[in-house]
Structure formats: C-alpha cells, structure tokens
Nucleic acid binder design. Structure first.
Length: 276
DNA sequence: GTGACCACCTGGCCGC
DNA sequence: TGCGGCCAGGTGGTCA
C-alpha cells in the first residue's frame, strides 16, 4: 500500500524516466480517477505541457508542468508503467500520458481508488487535498508541543491519530504499527494521556522508520511495486505488521492482531504494555 | 466539532 | 472445481 516511502520511491523513479518530456495527449479510460477539473478540461490543459520537475507532499505526487501542477494520489494500489505510444491497453491501465518522444506513461490501479487533480501553482496551497495536510515528518515545526496541542482533545486511540493526515502527513497503516512498536506505545492509548517522552518517541521513530523505508525502496506487501519489476525491501524490516502469531523480535512474546477503527492493527502486548 | 461507520473497488483467500 | 463471503485499506461523505 503506497505510504510516504513508496510514494517517494515512485516519485524518484518517475523523475529519472519522464523529466523534460512533453505531453502530446492524454487518454482517460476510467473517468472518476480525475477528481478535478472535468476530464475534457484535464486532457485539454495537459496537452503540450512539459514535465519540469516532480515533488511530493504527503502521499501526493506533484508533477510540475509549465502552467499547471498535476497531483496524483496512488491510494491503495496505484502505480505507473512505461509503454510505447500505441501499445495495447492492458487490464487496469486507466490513464495514459502520451509523450512527444513516443513514450506512454500509464497510470495503473487495480482497485481504481487513485485520484488526480490539476491545479495551478497559485492555487496549489488553497485546494482541498493540500490545504488540509498536516506537517511533513521532517518539518522542524513537528515538536512535542505541536503534538500535545493537536492531541489535547482527542478521545480516540493513538493509532487512529497517527493515521490522521491533518496532523502528520504520509503515515499509513503499516508504518503506524511499526512507529508505535518502536515507541513502546499501546495503540489503544488515548493521545492526551501520552507523556512527553512518548510523544518525542513518536516523532523520532516516525522519522527513523520512514527514512529507513525510503532507503529500502518502500514496503512490498500484496501488489505494491513502485514500477514493474521494482519491489521494496522494507517488509524484511517489519517488527509487527503482518506478523500475527509470530514471536516478537525484541521479547519473544506472540504478536497480536486486532482492529482499531476498522484498521488491522498489529502489536506486541508485552513491549507495548497493552492492558487489554 | 467529533467520532463511528460506510462506500468506493478488485483480487486473493478460505470454507463449503 | 466452483461459488459465496470476507478481507485488505486511504480517503471522503454522511449521520448521530
């Protein structure tokens, strides 16, 4: 599932492959993927635009074009493939960006959850997907006092708060479990009850886990790959996620799986002092 | 304003 | 072998 490290890997791969290319035309085969503007406008505005740079905000990839910024969210299983213009459309390929040099960048999404949004540089910070994002994990404004303020009225489990993109952006279900394990925090704990040291642990381990995952090219679970044939290696470094019934690598207790707010949650009852 | 729940969507897996 | 049901999960919408 693409979280920040996977999105970062995809962005870097795209950067190596499509920087400087000019879009000849765009084909959309599953219209709900284009969130804004209309599909016709989306296709028209992208024609003739050159990809000048790529960046990332949270889990959104930003394609920096001449006059616009194309935002792409991979959601659950989105990915990009490279083909030649005119190559047969394969299953689950929903949007084609055909370049003037004959290369066709294809957005592939088995579950069709991904979203694209076309905006301008001026409007970028005020549009819905971006304006509600919280801090990047490496933002210097991410401090214990920031988390204390954000968590002060929260009555929901810390696991749910860590997934809140409006507080820290980029963390998904896999890394939330890993961050809480490394911080020795009970995922059911109510955030306002967390001590300073525990909040600092969340900040430090968020950075540590994500940095390590980026170095390893992300996590390959189920169908995620950054591109064809490229798989991440961070799944080999997971302490708890998808390890139900296995021994904790730290204390030897059995890893437990439960659900918190509908999300599969893995934890070590001993290391994370879970009272349930 | 907050939290719980559901829909979106498809493939994989499991039990019968 | 085939079928039905459940599960996976990021995000936005709806409702209490």
């Amino acid at each position: 599932m693409p979280e920040l490290p996977e999105v970062e890997t995809v962005k870097e791969t795209l950067k190596r492959n499509i920087l400087g290319k000019t879009i000849k035309n765009v084909e959309v085969f599953y219209e709900p993927i284009v969130e804004y503007p209309s599909v016709e406008e989306f296709k028209k505005k992208l024609e003739g635009q050159t990809i000048n740079d790529l960046s990332r905000r949270g889990k959104w990839i930003e394609f920096i074009l001449d006059d616009y910024i194309l935002l792409s969210h991979l959601r659950m299983e989105g990915k990009y493939y490279y083909r030649k213009v005119g190559d047969k459309k394969e299953k689950h390929q929903h949007v084609f960006f055909n370049f003037t040099d004959g290369i066709s960048l294809r957005y592939v999404d088995v579950r069709k959850f991904g979203k694209m949004w076309l905006t301008t540089k001026e409007e970028l910070d005020s549009i819905k997907p971006i304006k509600e994002l919280g801090l990047e994990p490496w933002d210097e404004k991410l401090t214990v006092s920031y988390l204390k303020e954000k968590y002060k009225d929260k009555k929901i489990p810390i696991k749910t708060c860590i997934l809140d993109q409006g507080i820290i952006t980029g963390i998904g279900n896999i890394y939330a479990d890993e961050i809480l394990f490394l911080s020795n925090i009970d995922p059911f704990k109510i955030p306002k009850d967390l001590k300073k040291g525990e909040l600092q642990g969340i900040i430090d381990n968020t950075r540590k886990v994500l940095e390590n995952a980026i170095k390893k090219g992300g996590t390959t679970i189920r169908s995620y790959t950054s591109e064809e044939g490229v798989t991440g290696l961070f799944q080999n470094d997971l302490f708890v996620h998808q390890r139900e019934g296995e021994k904790c690598l730290t204390c030897g207790s059995i890893i437990v799986k439960t659900k918190i707010n509908g999300r599969g949650t893995y934890y070590c009852p001993k290391c994370q002092k879970v009272k349930k």
